[in-house]
Design a protein around this nucleic acid. Structure first.
Length: 472
DNA sequence: TCCACTCACACTTTTGAAAAGA
DNA sequence: ATCTTTTCAAAAGTGTGAGTGG
């Protein structure tokens, strides 16, 4: 209806690679001849509906799922080659926001980034055919504001804006990632503001309308008792909310809703009631991001004028050693020398980075790293070399793979399968905990940012790494 | 006083084990 | 004995509103 199903971006690997790979990389130009990978966001209309109002995602201490949740489709993968799918959250900008008079306003500089964590899709690694045969859901991804979170949820700051990045890595296992090509996709309409409580009642309404778990709050719901049991003020608020709901149900079609609000902010908020529960449907036209959105959308926000564009990036990054000092502490996994270094040097990204280099060099010969150049290419079909986990222990000091995931080394990664399974998430300190990026990392990140992101945002965006610098 | 945040609550869907049936 | 379907209770996910603390 919106043409949103065409929301994809053909990734021309060769042309997107704007510079020679670092000498430390094994992958040569051939590595980029693996065809065009296409990623599409599922349910784009829903995402767009939220986006037009200003998506908010609740973050809680125990972790909260996203809604809408990230669901994508992939094509163009090599069916028999294995891939790993990752998601992380990137700050949209360097600001903290507040909800004031029915719109978001900048409330100051962003707080230092929390530990940067990456969510690994539980199916990873899986062959391209697996990823392509069905849509890929990140339903179990959870967001938290608990910087000491021990469940591997992605840590965000409340009242800050983020957007998810999807990474596809052709790799047999998590160790191979180190030498593999990352292809990164973002969807402008998936950007959101992390909040501990909904600020915009329109978002609340949308969530209630679309999230099955919130059915109980729908107007037609059966919980009349609940709605009327509270105090009069509450009742009043509920009534007003019901009016909004009714009005919406009269419109009844998200497309109409979208259309009415897609023109963006038209400066009418001055006439809006102060209370957020006094909204009218008419106000749906207004964009919550007001002036700075108009500014950023063209200058430093991935959400450009044409939201159908899926900005993509590609970067060659050494894989994460993916450790996080407090993580090691939590799980009592034998902290590697390098992890201790990383831990002790948490304030010095550069030294940490350098300390990691020997790790790379000491990978055994049969490690997939060396033939990675060939493996990445189209000739990758055929028996997959799955190096035994023991090949790496003592080299990278990783924990062993979990049962049922023989090819996966537990990089202190957390899995949505269970909080206790260190499979599903990589984590590392955020950039704010590091000095300005090492020149090498800067190369990578700048390269990545060039793909679809305006230079105005390069500074902030590019400094938010997929993995901690110290991992490199 | 304001505002971001936490918590208990009622309600919902999801999950998984046990029971029933073929 | 095996497999499939159904049932049901527990677990998990949801927004609400009162309360808390800076």
């Amino acid at each position: 209806m919106f043409g949103y199903n065409e929301s994809y971006f053909l990734l021309d690997l060769k042309s997107n690679f704007s510079g020679p790979p670092p000498s430390s990389m094994a992958a040569g130009p051939d590595a980029y001849l693996q065809g065009n990978i296409r990623m599409t966001l599922e349910d784009p209309e829903l995402w767009k509906t939220f986006h037009e109002i200003g998506t908010e995602m609740i973050i809680t201490k125990p972790g909260r799922r996203m809604f809408p949740h990230c669901k994508i489709n992939l094509s163009g993968l090599i069916p028999c080659a294995k891939y790993i799918l990752l998601v992380d959250m990137v700050p949209e900008d360097g600001f903290r926001y507040k909800w004031n008079k029915e719109k978001w306003e900048v409330a100051g500089k962003a707080e230092p980034q929390p530990p940067c964590r990456t969510y690994l899709h539980p199916d990873s690694p899986a062959p391209g055919s697996h990823w392509m045969k069905q849509s890929i859901s990140f339903l179990k991804l959870k967001l938290t504001n608990n910087t000491l979170d021990q469940h591997g949820h992605i840590i965000l700051h409340s009242m800050h804006r983020y957007h998810p990045r999807f990474h596809i890595v052709q790799a047999d296992d998590l160790f191979s990632v180190r030498w593999s090509v990352f292809q990164t996709f973002t969807f402008p309409e998936t950007s959101f503001t992390a909040v501990t409580a909904y600020q915009n009642t329109k978002i609340t309404k949308l969530k209630i309308d679309h999230n099955p778990f919130a059915k109980g709050f729908r107007d037609e719901g059966t919980n009349k008792k609940r709605r009327s049991s509270k105090n009069p003020a509450c009742l009043d608020k509920r009534t007003k909310m019901s009016d909004i709901l009714k009005k919406d149900s009269e419109e009844d079609s998200p497309p109409d809703f979208c259309q009415s609000s897609f023109d963006g902010y038209d400066g009418e908020e001055g006439d809006l009631p102060k209370r957020k529960d006094d909204e009218s449907v008419k106000e749906e036209r207004y964009s919550p991001w007001g002036a700075e959105r108009e500014q950023n959308a063209r200058t430093d926000s991935p959400a450009g004028a044409d939201t159908r564009d899926v900005y993509s990036t590609e970067q060659l990054v050494p894989a994460p050693a993916s450790y996080q000092p407090y993580r090691f502490h939590e799980y009592g996994k034998s902290p590697s020398p390098s992890s201790s270094i990383g831990s002790s040097n948490s304030g010095s990204g550069r030294s940490s980075f350098e300390s990691r280099v020997p790790d790379v060099a000491t990978v055994p010969d049969h490690d997939s790293s060396k033939p990675r150049t060939q493996e990445i290419g189209p000739s990758n079909c055929g028996p997959q070399h799955l190096p035994g986990a023991q090949d790496y222990t003592g080299v990278l000091n990783m924990t062993m793979a979990q049962a049922g995931k023989p090819g996966v080394i537990g990089h202190h990664i957390y899995s949505p399968y269970g909080a206790e399974q260190p499979l599903g998430q990589w984590s590392g300190p955020g950039p704010a905990q590091y000095p300005p990026p090492h020149h090498l990392t800067a190369d990578y990140t700048t390269q990545a940012v060039h793909h679809g992101y305006h230079h105005g945002n390069v500074a902030e965006w590019s400094q938010y790494p997929l993995f901690s610098y110290s991992c490199w």
